[in-house]
Amino acid sequence: MMKVSPISRDANVMGGTPVFAGTRVPVQTFLDYLEAGDSIDEFLVGFPSVKREQVIAFLEEAKDRLVASVS
C-alpha cells in the first residue's frame, strides 16, 4: 500500500511552494509557528483547512527522514 504524503508541491498552487495537501497553507508557515513557540493547536486554529492528521504525518515523515540521514 502506497503512503500518501501530507505535503504536496504543484507549480499551479502557491508557485510550487510545499503546502499541506489539499490546502494552500505552506509548510513553512507551520514551521514558523513552531519556531515562534506556538503550539500545533494554535496553528490549527489559524489554519482550519489543515487537519491535525496532516501535521502529525508531516512531523513523522520529517523525523523518519532525519533519522535515515544520520544512520
Rank of each mutant, 00 (worst) to 15 (best):
Q28E: 14
F58M: 11
P26G: 07
A68M: 04
D10F: 03
V45M: 14
A68C: 00
G15M: 07
A57H: 04
P18G: 01
L31K: 12
D32N: 11
K3F: 13
E42C: 13
V19F: 06
Q54L: 07
A36V: 04
E35M: 10
P26Q: 04
P6E: 08
A62R: 09
E35A: 15
K51H: 07
E60G: 00
G15R: 04
R52T: 10
M14S: 07
M1N: 10
V4W: 11
L34S: 11
V25E: 04
G46M: 13
D64E: 11
E35H: 13
I40Q: 07
E61T: 08
A62L: 04
S69I: 02
G15S: 05
Q54F: 03
K3H: 15
G22S: 08
V50C: 04
P6N: 10
L34D: 03
M14H: 04
S5N: 09
F58H: 03
D32R: 09
D32H: 08
A21Y: 05
G22E: 06
P26Y: 01
P48T: 09
R24V: 09
D10G: 09
L44I: 10
D32F: 02
M1F: 15
S8A: 13
S71E: 05
V55C: 06
D32A: 07
D38Y: 15
